[in-house]
Amino acid sequence: MTTLITKTITKICLPLVILFSISLLLAGHNNPGGGFIGGVMFASIIALTYVAYGLDHIRSFFDPDWTNWFGLGLFLAAATAFVSMAFSYNFFRSAFGFVHIPLFGEVELASAAVFDVGVYLVVIGGLLSIFTNVGDDK
């Protein structure tokens, strides 16, 4: 699979797909997308990179501990659930509001988006840690 064509295409796709996955994550509240899809997309392109260039080669200069990602994601998601309690609302109560930012116009801020970021990180971390574990030759 590691032909020159694969490698070149992967190299071009990598930044685009990552940006697209982030846009999916952020757009999720109102358009197709969301944390889960965005996370799977991110994980796919990283997986493709691993396959195209070889796990060990990529790891020699880029080797994050994916388990930390899902740890952080779970923490974020759980934290949004509890934060509402600190404001004397019940568990998991969500809130949203609109702010005006120059150039962007009206932007919606929702507490659920933080939760979605948590989902995003968990999906990336979970899938890629499985992937690296299964794919590891050792």
Partner: peptide, 13 residues
Amino acid sequence: AGGHNIVNVILVD
């Protein structure tokens, strides 16, 4: 929940 995407709103909210 302030979201147009019902699938996503159900999932996260």
